[in-house]
Write a protein that binds this DNA or RNA. Structure first.
Length: 576
DNA sequence: GCCGTTTTCGGCCCGACTGTTTTCAGTCG
């Protein structure tokens, strides 16, 4: 039974929690948390790499001890020290950490004073007002915990970037309109372009005396105030989304924006680098001794520690500091560099606009070519195109191309990759098309071996030009298929075949980690809207965000090139 | 537990808010 990276990471997180409940050294705890993060973000399964001779202690933050635990876990599926910890820490105590305001110290104190070792125990003690008798606990904390416990069930999980964007823009406008406010930016994981956002972080530049906190509390979507201060406030909106606002003087805006954009791991690393140079970085600026030497802009903060600007999408502690000091940061792709879109649908299948409407919308979105790739007919498909329907659409596209200006329409199809890796339409039916987009729409649960073979065989089909949404995941709904991606990337590079970064907000597939790995293997990426409505070309922004998180520059993206070159790329795949 | 152009031992990012306390610990981001 192969052990997945996420299981190793989850075990390390549990060890960290249990160590914290044992009152262990915080730096030892941090080592486990950092190792969990490192392992979770790896593009390839560690078990497979170890089997191939890789030594995990070469990973950053993983030394001899943790490497040994990884080996033990991979070999046996168990970790003895985790099991020992589970025996030594009262069962159930860990779930207390899920509650805001309860950390390891308070969880421990409640256990020792009242024997509380579960959320159910806590509720009972709260109901009987026993908590307030524990040293360092009081009536206010009791009330806070009561509210937190009630809210725990309905606590919102992370929302998609697009949903967060709706709330963020309203808040930004509201805060910017406060008299005296000089500047407002949305920071946090939103600014780093993560596919989901847990809470909103906003940074406000305002001179002393501007009461941003009071204004925020009057925002009509605020349901509860968690913290309220002169420079920092936290509220919860009616939707359940938490909002943290940080207010700084204008001269510190860059430093505060940097600090609040994160990620936490990135900030810790930046501050560590600064310390080595005799500097201190905080949210007010960069300091040498008591002298502030930077802070008005983010560029000044990085410049003060001797580094070039690092784009927010790269700030995940995934090698950006090494790249920055070597002056090898990628020139990240922008939306303006996209020249066209290689995946879109019309009313002929499951889209809701006509061919002409989709093409017009694409042209207005600044695209110079658009591939129409409606679904093929296949077993169980609704409204797939049959040979007659496809032939009719081809004629319509020829007719439209003769008529419209400013955009070229490519003839394509989205065809199913069947369980055996064959395509749902025979080669002769595909030969007339400009491109063939293959996609997995069924049999998601095949074994790693079968799924890998399936995709490798699909990549061997002569007419396949693009593998769409390769992992078939739906964020928070459907797990990615299990597959040896390094093999798939190698084959796609040899063919060559484009791999898609599908920009639908619930797909974003390939994700940032795999897209970076694919590009490193020499595969060209197609950022595609998969538009079903005329509004959907806006999804391309999200695709570009994900591509930037994957460190991709325009040269790694097929559809940043002129149509002639894209045609050559697509045609080359037909010749092999 | 990790790590090293100061170090193989002794460090490990930094500050705001809250509540329970009279000077600070805990939690969080």
């Amino acid at each position: 039974m192969p052990v997945h990276n996420d299981e190793i990471a989850t075990a390390f997180d549990e060890i960290a929690d249990l160590l914290s409940l044992s009152g262990e050294n915080q730096f030892r705890i941090r080592a486990y948390r950092r190792a969990a993060q490192t392992v979770r973000a790896l593009p390839e399964e560690l078990a497979a790499r170890i089997a191939a001779g890789f030594d995990p202690d070469r990973l950053p933050g993983i030394g001899a001890d943790l490497a040994g635990k990884i080996r033990e876990f991979v070999a046996s599926g168990h970790c003895k020290s985790l099991e020992a910890l589970r025996r030594s820490v009262p069962r159930g105590l860990r779930e207390m950490l899920a509650l805001p305001d309860i950390g390891p110290q308070r969880a421990r104190a409640l256990y020792e004073a009242l024997g509380i070792h579960s959320l159910a125990d806590l509720k009972e003690s709260l109901d009987h007002h026993r908590i307030r008798r524990v040293p360092h606990f009081g009536t206010r904390l009791e009330e806070r915990l009561r509210k937190s416990l009630e809210a725990l069930g309905e606590r919102s999980h992370r929302v998609s970037w697009n949903v967060a964007d709706g709330y963020a823009q309203g808040l930004r406008r509201f805060l910017a309109a406060i008299p005296g406010v000089a500047q407002v930016e949305v920071a946090g994981s939103y600014r780093r372009g993560r596919e989901t956002v847990g809470d909103l972080d906003l940074v406000v530049a305002a001179p002393a005396g501007v009461d941003v906190d009071r204004a925020l509390r009057s925002y009509d979507e605020v349901a509860a105030v968690l913290a309220s201060g002169r420079t920092r406030s936290s509220v919860v909106l009616r939707s359940g989304l938490q909002v943290d606002v940080r207010v700084v003087p204008p001269a510190s805006f860059g430093a505060a924006l940097y600090y609040f954009t994160g990620s936490k791991a990135h900030n810790i690393r930046l501050r560590t680098i600064a310390v080595a140079k005799g500097l201190k970085v905080n949210e007010y600026g960069v300091y040498r001794g008591r002298n502030r030497i930077a802070g008005e802009t983010e560029e000044s903060v990085l410049g003060a520690v001797g580094l070039p600007y690092i784009a927010p999408e790269l700030r995940e502690d995934r090698g950006e500091f090494d790249a920055a000091s070597a002056r090898h940061l990628p020139d990240l792709v922008t939306r303006e560099q996209l020249t066209g879109d290689l995946h879109a649908h019309t009313r002929a299948t499951d889209g809701n606009a006509s061919l002409e409407e989709m093409v017009d919308a694409a042209r207005r979105a600044g695209l110079r070519y658009l591939a129409i790739t409606d679904h093929s007919k296949y077993l169980g498909a609704v409204h797939g195109l049959d040979a007659t329907g496809l032939s009719r659409q081809i004629d319509q596209i020829d007719e439209l191309n003769a008529r419209v200006r400013g955009i070229r329409v490519l003839k394509g199809i989205e065809v199913d990759v069947l369980e055996d890796g064959s395509l749902a339409l025979p080669d002769p039916a595909l030969a007339r098309l400009d491109l063939v987009v293959g996609a997995v729409h069924s049999q998601f649960a095949l074994s790693r071996r079968k799924q890998t073979d399936r995709l490798l065989r699909a990549l061997d089909r002569p007419y396949l030009s693009v593998l769409a949404h390769p992992t078939a995941r739906l964020i928070d709904q459907r797990a990615p298929i299990d597959c040896d991606w390094s093999q798939v990337f190698r084959r796609a590079e040899e063919r060559p075949c484009l791999l898609e970064l599908n920009a639908q907000p619930d797909r974003l597939d390939l994700d940032d980690v795999l897209a970076r790995e694919a590009a490193a293997s020499g595969v060209l990426i197609s950022i595609a809207s998969d538009a079903h409505r005329i509004e959907d070309f806006a999804f391309l922004d999200g695709g570009v965000r994900q591509a930037r998180r994957a460190w991709l520059s325009a040269s790694a993206i097929a559809n940043t090139r002129p149509l002639g070159e894209v045609r050559r790329l697509l045609r080359r795949t037909f010749l092999k």
